[in-house]
Amino acid sequence: MTQEGVATAEEIVNIERPQETLPSGWEPNILAFACHYCAFAAADLAGVMRLSYPTTVKIIRLPCTGKLDPYYVLRALEGGVDGVFAAG
C-alpha cells in the first residue's frame, strides 16, 4: 500500500479477483430485481430488439426498486445465487 490504510488500484483488483480458479465456461448465477416502470421495460425492449443476455441471469419484476427488501437480497444469496442486480 502506498499510504497507510489506502489500497492501490492493483490491490483492489486482487481483492475482487476470486481466490479459486474457476472452471472454464463458468458463469455466475445472477438474480436481477427490475423496476416495472424502467428497467423491466428496458429488458422487454431488449427482447423486442432480439438482444440476448446469459441464461444464468434471472429477472424478478418489482413494482418499484423501493420494494426491494434487504431480506430478498439475503434470501437470494442464501439460496445460492452468486450476485444480485438491482435495476430501477
Binding site: 427488501d69 431480506y71 442464501e78
Partner: peptide, 16 residues
C-alpha cells in the same frame, strides 16, 4: 420481526 428475518438470514450465511 423484519429485523429478526434479516439477522436470521445473516446468521445462516455466517454459519455456512
Amino acid at each position: 420481526n423484519k429485523e429478526a428475518q434479516i439477522l436470521g438470514s445473516l446468521l445462516r450465511l455466517k454459519a455456512k
